[in-house]
Design a protein around this nucleic acid. Structure first.
Length: 98
DNA sequence: GAAATGACGGCGC
DNA sequence: GGCGCCGCCATTT
């Protein structure tokens, strides 16, 4: 395999931390920006690496957060100014461009 | 070493 | 536009 080095994780964390309040990013965008081969890797990192970073700003390409965290993330995002309509975030206007 | 798993994405229906 | 299947990549059992 091509083991994910700490550097990769650091890069991903940096990108997530670089997302300004009121903006969101998709797993695919982060994976691409971090130089990872697949968005799955980002998901794996987030799952394993529980940091204080604003993971709630990272959502799926569908514009909807992960099912188990959807409510919590949506609530936090709403508090940051991201108005999610019908449990969905308008990527068209809130998507952070790296 | 093989099979299952997961905070995903894209394409087809 | 919503739902489902398949493909991806690394980790874990």
């Amino acid at each position: 395999m091509a083991p994910i080095t700490d550097e990769h994780v650091e890069t991903v964390r940096g990108l997530v931390a670089a997302i300004p309040a009121g903006k969101v990013a998709t797993y695919g965008d982060i994976a691409d920006a971090a130089g990872l081969s697949s968005p799955r890797i980002v998901a794996w990192i987030m799952r394993t690496d529980s940091s204080d970073l604003p993971w709630h700003r990272v959502i799926r390409a569908s514009g909807r957060p992960a099912p188990h965290l959807a409510s919590a993330q949506l609530e936090r995002l709403r508090a940051e100014g991201v108005l999610a309509t019908d449990g969905r975030v308008p990527l068209s206007g809130c998507r952070h461009r790296f």
